[in-house]
Structure formats: structure tokens, C-alpha cells
Amino acid sequence: MAIALTTLVAEAQRYLNAARISDYCPNGLQIEGRPQVRRIVSGVTASQALVDAAVAAEADVLLVHHGYFWKGENPCITGMKQRRLKTLLSNDISLLAYHLPLDVHPEVGNNVQLAAQLEITVEGPLDPDDPRSVGLLGSLSEPMSPRDFARRVQEVLGREPLLVEGLEMVRRIGWCTGGGQGYIDQAIAAGVDLYLTGEASEQTFHSARENGISFIAAGHHATERYGVQALGDYLARRFAIEHLFIDCPNPI
């Protein structure tokens, strides 16, 4: 079965409420390919490796979290950017990308999907008074030591996380996938035992240590694999088309 590209894009836009979210890149259809869609390939970042894999998988649409055309980047179509775009255009593959709308969605968002993977019960936003905050606050059913929770993260995500170990047992957790280390201050204010994100900055260590909480950096790519899979599955079910998630491993 096939669905019109315009119909697929319209449903993704509606479902994610993308038009209402201010972002650093255009959300939605970034590159237009063939008008009919039978197969979606999804992945975290529209790297050349993923683009090539989408070609090999005979995708009609490549659905990603990290697409192209970020604010402040050089707009010239040269080098790496030219090669990626040329591959998509020459193979008539559409690129559909959602950044912040995919982070914050209450059903397929990266943050809620990561919580499900790690068995964290979502309680609400990390900072309910800050509309720009995309992080979440939640809890474990039973307290765990920081090292035991870090082992759970490693087992689920398949990579050893960076752990700054605090003294307290972990029950209350704040988190934001990807490059969300800057939200650690909101997490501290919310009274968490541990803050989890993808990346770490130099000052993150000091914030965690001096405020007596644990901190885990589990990888930008690793923490953001689940939202795009869930969105691809939703669209595939909605329109009875094929969906294949392809993971191109990234240690960062």
C-alpha cells in the first residue's frame, strides 16, 4: 500500500504539533522526493551513512531527529552537505526531520520513550514554570544506588555511561535527552537525586558534585534513538506502510 507524501507529512505535522514549537531548524519536510510513500526508513541523524542505508533499503522517506539547515550554519551547498543532498535528490528520497517537536511529544517523544526504556515513571516537566524547558521529572519504583542505575543505563543503551556518583540513593530523577546538560540547574532546583542526559560539559561535574547529586551522560545519539522509532512506527500503523529503523552507531 502507498500513501501520498503530502498526507504523510500533514499527519506528522499534526501529531507532533510542530508548527507551534520554535526551533533551531525547519521541522517537517526538508527535502521533497517521490510523491508516493510505501516505505519509511528512520534513524537519529541524516548522516551520509544513514542516507546510503536508506538508498540500499529502497526508502521513499528518510525520517530523522537531526536533519539539515540549522540556524547559523554556512548555507553553501558544498562538501559533506552537497554529497548528502545529492544522494537524496538523485534517489528521489524525501527527508522528514523533527527536532524539538520529537523531544517533547508526550507519546513518541525522546524523553518519554527513554523513560519507558529505563523504567522511570514520568511525573511532569522538569521546570513547569519554564515553557522552554524540554526536560522531565520522574521516579523509580524502588531506590537504587547510582552505580546500579548506571548499570541499567548501560544494559539498555548498550554503552557505558559517564557517571558522577553522589552519596544518595537514586529515586527521583530528572532527564533530558541529547545535549541537555544545561538543564542540570533546573534538576537540582527540583530536588532530584540524579540527572541524566546525553552529553556533559566541564562545569556539569562541578554542579553535580557541589550540589550532592549524581549525574549520568549516556550519549547524545544513544539517548535519542527511541523517539524517531516510535514516530516511524506510529506513521506506519496509521497508513499501513512499511517502517525500518536503521541505527548508525555513534559513540558521542
Results as ranks from 00 to 15, higher is better:
2 A>E: 14
2 A>I: 04
4 A>S: 14
6 T>V: 13
6 T>N: 15
8 L>N: 10
9 V>L: 05
9 V>R: 00
10 A>W: 00
11 E>R: 12
12 A>Q: 04
16 L>Q: 14
18 A>P: 07
18 A>Q: 00
20 R>Y: 07
20 R>K: 14
26 P>N: 00
28 G>N: 12
30 Q>L: 01
32 E>N: 04
33 G>V: 03
36 Q>I: 03
42 S>F: 11
42 S>L: 09
43 G>T: 01
44 V>S: 06
44 V>T: 08
45 T>S: 15
46 A>W: 02
49 A>P: 04
49 A>Y: 01
50 L>S: 05
51 V>L: 02
51 V>K: 02
52 D>F: 09
52 D>N: 15
52 D>R: 15
53 A>C: 08
53 A>Q: 13
55 V>N: 05
55 V>Y: 04
56 A>C: 07
58 E>N: 15
60 D>H: 14
61 V>Y: 11
63 L>D: 03
64 V>A: 11
64 V>D: 15
65 H>T: 13
68 Y>N: 05
70 W>L: 13
70 W>K: 10
72 G>H: 12
74 N>C: 10
76 C>L: 15
76 C>S: 11
77 I>E: 06
78 T>S: 10
78 T>P: 00
81 K>V: 15
81 K>Y: 14
85 L>F: 03
90 S>T: 12
90 S>F: 08
93 I>E: 00
95 L>N: 03
97 A>P: 10
102 L>V: 11
102 L>H: 08
105 H>N: 08
105 H>E: 03
108 V>G: 02
109 G>C: 05
110 N>L: 11
119 E>A: 14
119 E>T: 11
121 T>H: 11
121 T>R: 09
123 E>S: 11
124 G>V: 12
124 G>C: 08
125 P>C: 10
127 D>L: 05
131 P>L: 05
134 V>Q: 09
134 V>L: 13
142 E>H: 14
143 P>H: 00
145 S>E: 06
146 P>W: 12
148 D>N: 08
148 D>V: 05
151 R>W: 04
151 R>V: 08
153 V>A: 02
155 E>G: 02
158 G>V: 01
158 G>Q: 10
163 L>W: 00
163 L>Y: 07
163 L>F: 02
165 E>K: 11
167 L>T: 14
168 E>S: 07
171 R>L: 02
172 R>W: 00
177 T>H: 04
177 T>E: 09
178 G>C: 12
181 Q>E: 13
183 Y>W: 09
187 A>N: 00
188 I>S: 01
188 I>D: 02
191 G>A: 03
192 V>R: 00
194 L>Q: 02
194 L>E: 07
199 E>F: 13
200 A>N: 01
201 S>L: 09
201 S>P: 00
206 H>L: 06
206 H>K: 02
213 I>C: 11
214 S>Y: 07
214 S>Q: 06
214 S>K: 00
215 F>S: 06
219 G>C: 04
227 G>F: 12
228 V>T: 09
230 A>P: 11
231 L>W: 02
236 A>W: 01
236 A>I: 09
239 F>A: 01
240 A>D: 15
240 A>K: 12
241 I>E: 06
241 I>S: 10
243 H>E: 08
243 H>I: 08
244 L>K: 13
244 L>P: 01
245 F>Q: 10
246 I>K: 03
248 C>K: 05
250 N>Q: 09
251 P>V: 03
251 P>C: 08
